[in-house]
Nucleic acid binder design. Structure first.
Lengths: 195, 195
DNA sequence: CTCCTATCCCTAGCGCCGCTAGAAAACGAG
DNA sequence: CTCGTTTTCTAGCGGCGCTAGGGATAGGAG
């Protein structure tokens, strides 16, 4: 029993090592630099070892995405709980979201951009994803108008943030006006009487 | 002189052929299927011929993007001019934009998603891109509140549309609620007194 | 008609990718 | 020590974007 458990522990440790190496390499040099050969070299094992832990490169990226999403959820929560009014909370969460995307682009891409098949808008979605969305939801809920579906409104606000971030990061929107665009988005999601 | 012009004409024709083949292949089987080998086979020339016309695969994709963007601009214009009120125009343009993205995903990706280095928010941007943005701009302009920067507001609305489309297409937002999310976005961009 | 030159285009191949089959090594049990 | 199992590695497959270098070919000169 102890031998078995030791092996399982070592395996789990190595799995962590793979995910961490993938994340660090992606954050340092971008996802293009994350190849299975490079990753194997980084963890000091041969390539096929990766495939004994994950189904393929996509699964490794998905693991990085889930792990990164927990960070995002933390930052969103911190921003939301530190804010005073409902409007401030919405703005704080929006700011934290876009700041995360700009500060950790590789992580953001893994979670929200790259075609990595994670279940998203379903109960089977990883807890970290649901947590992050939940933070947005809690920030949006107080500013929803009567009769508005809070979930849908959150998704729409999220889409706005995501659009701003991706268009800017791909060079399609100029960086320097980001804060003003973000303010416009937030302003249009806060009901008239509340600002 | 005539020989020279004939050759140039033939070259131009072949270039059109390449771009068309790339677009059709991408629309039929996705961009992953568009490899230089496959493309060469499609146009019945060898691979290196592609590189005598374009700097690389990215340049071919950029050409497809520009060509596709003209289509998008046309559809946006048609939607806008057919609409009655300012609110209807905004909704019509938003609907046409997302419909285009869903109907021609490969084209949309080439224009707005894939990392293809085209100048965007500058005067050197291709005319088709500026036209498409101009259509959005004309739809947004009438609903801008006093003191709001129309350009920035358009960019923000655009980001909202783009976010909705990309998150939905990557499976991160459920398809079936798209119209309701779009309506929410539009509703939040129309001033209170105008709807 | 022949030869020369310049242009064009193709064959072949480089280094890389994700992934995998099958050999080799390490390890625990008897 | 030997055997069977489990783990890990070496080697390689097919495909990618891209390019060097060698013919084929076409147009002008004699």
């Amino acid at each position: 029993m102890t031998i078995q458990t030791r092996r399982e522990r070592e395996r789990a440790e190595r799995e962590r090592l793979i995910v961490t190496a993938a994340r660090e390499l992606a954050e340092a040099e971008g996802w293009d630099a994350v190849t299975t050969r490079r990753l194997a070299e980084e963890i000091e094992y041969s390539q096929p070892v990766l495939y004994s832990h994950f189904k393929g490169k996509g699964a490794i990226m998905a693991a990085v995405a889930v792990q990164g999403c927990a960070d995002l959820a933390d930052e969103l929560r911190a921003a939301r709980t530190a804010a005073g009014s409902a409007r401030e909370a919405l703005a704080a969460v929006g700011g934290a979201y876009t700041a995360f995307a700009r500060r950790r682009p590789a992580l953001y891409d893994a979670i929200f951009t790259l075609p990595v098949d994670l279940p998203f808008a379903t109960p089977e979605a990883p807890a970290a994803l649901q947590d992050a969305f939940g933070e947005l939801l809690q920030a949006v809920e107080p500013i929803a108008a009567e009769g508005e579906d809070t979930g849908l409104l959150t998704e729409t606000y999220w889409a706005g943030l995501h659009g701003l971030v991706t268009l800017m990061r791909s060079g399609r929107l100029p960086e320097e006006a980001h804060e003003r665009r973000l303010a416009l988005l937030i302003g249009h999601f806060v009901p008239q009487g509340m600002d």
